[in-house]
Write a protein that binds this DNA or RNA. Structure first.
Lengths: 220, 220
DNA sequence: CCGAAGCTGACAACTCGCTGACAGCCGCTG
DNA sequence: CAGCGGCTGTCAGCGAGTTGTCAGCTTCGG
């Protein structure tokens, strides 16, 4: 597997490359924003490690560019220590995980592995659950072949449940994934969304396990 | 699932408890090193959140003690801000993850979940005892393949007994695991739950050992 | 046969999740 | 800039599901 590391600090970059290389990955290194953007957009990486403090085009913009042009490569963001704002921004922009500096290389490796495992598991572009089809690339959902128009949050919710079909997903976990770290709303907001979703999908598609959470695909 | 939180700062401790409780965990709280060591060594937690700056026996020693006595419960260590040395020491002593203070509760929760996911990943998702199947992913229980709908407390009770099949579990231990440290109810509450459970599962599934406790799977 | 331990059905209080209505916000359009 | 429509959070009320308590009963062991 091929990885891209975008990091301007030469020493860190080399160390990271060494760690990842000896873990069996092919590693490309870039040192500024423009290069990062270009390579990430034109090459096909299994994962990208992105320092937000790059010279030139800044990390967040790079990430947003990739996502806007339809790239779903997992991105692990390196943030300055304690920069909570940066992190939130990174997640909003489409990062899959973050790691505050300074970090242990073991930890970096563990997270890289976890992300890759996750994304390989997600390989298929569409998930079918009974009469429902979720197309994660096209951001489309259909029931009995009839496409539905879902709002962004609704889509995130369905696709998360679909990815975790057959498993009860606690409401709190759903919130995390639908809303990220923005916890500025009442618990009830999620329930309202579920209700609206059920109206569109049919109420039998999402089951409630009172006291535990929600799940899809309990029957098969 | 039951968690132990070892933290001496009362405010932090209460907040953490609230967050974790509302995420669906039963939480026990301790405020010093000795208590932490004792409870972590004698009770059976799914995960332990350990502040290194505990009064009395210090966190690192507590952690080392646990590991030396063969406890592999996942431990999330809380370190003082910027205390790099502590962090490394914690990891060496057997911590599974660390979190520098101050932290966002969302982040704590995310890490707790990640650790638990990792550790339960090793165990099977279902437990079979005779005609009974307990599925911890779907939060479902079935007898002879027929699914039953259990309430949250009922489910916790059954799955605890199932995890400890063939062993007599004292009523007090069951209470601990179903209710955590929340003692605010009559002893009889548990009996009532057992009764309701037996009605659903069939009365022969849970045996009573008068004077000692309950058990499942004594026959096989 | 007695007392203690445990069981059980009824009940009431409570909690949780659902829903419809509404309002604020945002982006679009004229 | 005003008006509009879609999206989403909030609120309040409802109803079903859940759980503790209690009182009376059964079972067990000695």
């Amino acid at each position: 597997m091929r990885l891209l590391v975008a990091e301007d600090d030469r020493r860190i970059a080399e160390d990271v490359r060494t760690v990842l290389t000896s873990a069996g990955y092919a590693v490309d290194l870039v040192r500024n924003g423009e290069e990062a953007w270009f390579k990430g957009d034109t090459e096909d990486y299994g994962l990208i490690v992105l320092d937000l403090g790059l010279p030139g085009m800044d990390g967040i913009s790079v990430l947003k560019q990739w996502r806007m042009s339809g790239r779903h490569t997992p991105v692990l963001v390196l943030t300055a220590r304690g920069s909570w704002a940066e992190r939130v921004e990174g997640i909003d922009a489409g990062a899959d995980d973050y790691l505050p500096k300074p970090f242990q290389f073991e930890e970096l490796l563990a997270r890289v592995r976890a992300l890759i495992r996750r994304s390989v598991g997600h390989g298929a572009a569409t998930i079918e659950i009974g009469r429902l089809v979720v197309d994660t690339r096209m951001m489309r959902v259909a029931v009995d072949g009839i496409p539905l128009s879902l709002t962004p949050f609704e889509f995130r919710l369905v696709s998360y449940l679909a990815h975790h079909r057959g498993r009860v997903v606690p409401a709190s976990e759903l919130q995390d994934h639908v809303y990220g770290d923005d916890f500025s709303r009442e618990a009830n907001a999620l329930e309202a969304m579920i209700a609206r979703l059920r109206k569109k999908l049919g109420s039998e598609m999402i089951a409630t396990r009172r006291g535990f959470g929600y799940l899809m695909g309990d029957d098969g």
